[in-house]
């Protein structure tokens, strides 16, 4: 018992989560008109279920978690620093896109995101990159805004 196995670590995390969830569940106010089953019952049930399941997970042997699916031979991806940086930047790019879509408009923001990410992932043929993204983004934009009449932010572009 010197070191927790992976299941036990996950179980502790889930345990903390379910306790937090339950604390919130107990704060759900009762409805003014009495109901046989009020809003708080199901969340409480789910919270306790999760609590119980995380305890069971703590006891489960992680041996069962050998190769997860047949296509991946190693359980954990052999990922170095570069991959983690790429993942992090991708994750960050989503909120950035969310921030840019209003001021820059749908077309520019999407083009920027698409070409930028492809570049990040190591694609260096910039012309083809831009062309491919235009070929996807522009028809999408036209389909959504012109054919279906959905409003999308236009940004500085005139259309």
């Amino acid at each position: 018992m010197t070191r927790l196995n992976i299941n036990q670590l996950l179980a502790l995390l889930l345990l903390a989560f379910s306790i937090g969830y339950l604390i919130l569940a107990f704060q759900i106010p009762a409805f003014a008109i009495p109901r046989p089953v009020d809003s708080d019952a199901f969340p409480k049930l789910l919270g306790f279920l999760m609590l119980g399941l995380s305890l069971l997970l703590f006891l489960e042997k992680p041996a069962a978690a050998a190769p997860q699916d047949s296509e991946t031979t190693s359980q954990h991806p052999v990922s170095g620093r570069k991959e983690i940086v790429q993942l992090g930047l991708t994750a960050v790019s989503i909120p950035v896109y969310a921030l840019l879509i209003e001021p820059l408009g749908f077309v520019l923001a999407s083009l920027l995101l698409g070409t930028g990410l492809a570049w990040l992932y190591g694609y260096r043929r910039h012309g083809i990159n831009l062309l491919a993204m235009c070929l996807v983004v522009l028809p999408l934009y036209l389909l959504l805004s012109k054919v279906m009449g959905i409003y999308l932010p236009t940004g500085p572009l005139p259309f």
């Binding site: 698409g114 990410l117 491919a132 996807v136």
Partner: peptide, 9 residues
């Protein structure tokens, strides 16, 4: 790289 970026878009 293009494919991944396209899926994200």
């Amino acid at each position: 790289p293009l494919l991944l970026s396209l899926i994200l878009i």
